[in-house]
């Protein structure tokens, strides 16, 4: 038996495999395909204080080994989540992490305060890295002082596990990670999507209504791995790594680079069973390599 349990600042996940916000709905969309109880956690669709319609169509463009999206945080607001969605999904034996967003610090605080009162929700992901809308807070995530300011404010409002989701659209992600660690973050998750763009040469028009959007999928995996490694070497808090994870092997690579847990994102669109498969593949890897505790993989990169 392999011990797959990991620990995010005191919050125990039964295994390191979670699903990324915006790629897994509220989990219930996947019940025909997988057993949600097998997952370490689910990061549900991004929430804002008020409901949002998101950006105009088209919001998606397929790109080599990945895709661009510009959804723009379409959601019905945090109250709707707490009153109508969470009661439907709380019975699953997995950690549910809301992903919170705002355009001003007070909005983040308001959302965090509401979620702080919800029994059964033991952690939130503070999104300061959505590239598609002002309310997604990338403005906060790309400068160290503002990342620190929003993290400090939400830290005061939220007593449980606080994971800050970092933007890769920065010069030095390790510096930002250190900043939010100092501001009270329990953990950092990275990376959100990379700002990108696609053009139709025939029509000379952009493929997204917003012109630019967030790139995800295997195309960004080498960048994401590098950033996880840099952050791992800069902070002491646990890292939730993501960026183009398509299978168990990719997940192992993220753990070797320093991730305590991982998020499966865009891969869910191609194989709705992939998250559960990755749990099994990590276990198989451990068995094949004589590893009794999955935590032994964290930062296990051999560099000499």
């Amino acid at each position: 038996m392999v011990d797959l349990q990991v620990d995010i600042a005191g919050l125990k996940l039964k295994n390191p495999v979670t699903t990324a916000s915006g790629t897994f709905g509220f989990g219930e969309e996947f019940v025909d395909f997988i057993d949600l109880d097998k997952l370490g956690g689910i990061f549900v669709k991004g929430l804002t204080i008020k409901s949002r319609e998101g950006n105009d169509y088209p919001r998606m463009a397929e790109t080599p080994s990945g895709m661009l999206n510009a959804v723009g945080l379409q959601n019905k607001g945090v109250d709707y989540f707490i009153d109508s969605i969470y009661p439907r999904i709380k019975h699953w034996d997995t950690e549910i992490f809301p992903n919170i967003n705002g355009s001003v610090i007070d909005d983040y605080i308001a959302v965090a305060e509401k979620l702080n009162e919800v029994k059964g929700i033991n952690g939130i992901e503070l999104n300061i890295s959505c590239p598609n809308v002002k309310e997604g807070g990338m403005a906060f995530g790309v400068s160290c002082p503002s990342a620190i300011a929003v993290t400090k404010a939400v830290r005061k409002a939220y007593d449980k596990t606080l994971i800050v989701k970092l933007s890769p659209n920065v010069t030095d992600i390790a510096e930002i990670a250190k900043g939010v660690e100092g501001a009270g973050a329990d953990s950092v998750s990275l990376v959100n999507t990379l700002l990108g763009m696609a053009i139709d040469a025939k029509t000379k028009k952009p493929l997204l209504s917003t012109i630019t959007g967030g790139l995800s999928g295997p195309a960004i995996k080498p960048i994401a791995l590098r950033m996880v490694w840099q952050v791992y070497n800069a902070v002491k808090i646990p890292i939730v790594g993501m960026g183009g994870i398509m299978n168990g092997n990719d997940a192992i690579e993220f753990m070797l680079a320093g991730s305590t847990a991982i998020q499966v994102g865009t891969a869910n669109f191609i194989d709705p069973q992939v998250s559960e498969k990755i749990v099994d593949e990590i276990e198989q890897y451990c068995i094949s390599n004589g590893i009794s505790k999955v935590t032994d993989l964290i930062g296990g990169l051999i560099t000499e």
Binding site: G22, T23, F24, G25, E29, F30, K45, G54, Y57, P58, R59, M60, N69, V71, Q74, N268, F269, P272
Partner: peptide, 8 residues
């Protein structure tokens, strides 16, 4: 399956 919200 209604999770990415790209096709609105």
């Amino acid at each position: 399956i209604g999770v990415c919200l790209c096709c609105v």
